[in-house]
Nucleic acid binder design. Sequence first.
DNA 1: CCGAATCCTCTGGGATACTG
DNA 2: CAGTATCCCAGAGGATTCGG
Lengths: 123, 123
Amino acid sequence: MNSPDAFNALCPTRQILDRIADKWTVLLLGLLAGRTMRFNELRRGVDGLSQKVLSQTLKSLERDGLVTRAVYPTVPVTVEYAITDLGRTLAATLEPLRLWAESHMNVIEQARADFDRRQQAAA
Amino acid sequence: MNSPDAFNALCPTRQILDRIADKWTVLLLGLLAGRTMRFNELRRGVDGLSQKVLSQTLKSLERDGLVTRAVYPTVPVTVEYAITDLGRTLAATLEPLRLWAESHMNVIEQARADFDRRQQAAA
DNA sequence: CCGAATCCTCTGGGATACTG
DNA sequence: CAGTATCCCAGAGGATTCGG
């Protein structure tokens, strides 16, 4: 068996990287790392995430063994999503990413402003 | 000033997260963290990355202050991309993500097979 | 060699409506 | 409440061509 290599387009790792390097995955696993949550709870927790995409993303996460889906036959039905042990290891890897974005927001915006000004000056 | 919050769609952090949580960013910064590289060198280094998308991604990375672009007036022209100090901090954050994908490839594929088999059984 | 520009395709994802 | 189904469109991105 050849070693996993994300730089190779044909390696399954590439596909996995594409899935997990996704803003919705980062945010959803960030929430679920805290506690088990219901569908609409997650929807409200992640602003701008449509119901369709939430549904798709959760199904992918469940398929990959990162979250579990539990249905309780109440009326109306209750569905709870919980993070798995595997998902928790990924969440731990993704959290620094969100924190980096939040802590470097100002630096990035400054860099963008500088870049745009230089472009403007060149034109 | 209100605190950065990636869960809020209107926060600039959201946009930044969207840009950095990207497979091409992960792979390109992973390469550039090792050494300065030229355009076609990067193109060859990341399999499946088209010239157009590479060009776009590099421009974004440069605008965000994560890489620098140096042009040398040789014939033909030489263009070198180097990671910045800021980019290096991000690369350090992204590397675990690529490693996670590579080291959990088998577990994920197993989970997917199990899931698909359960779906099949239910149908 | 390093791109910019053009064209064209395809699909991610929004809006809406309907079920169990 | 928690989805699935349908329609629809903007925009991502591949292929190709051209320029510095």
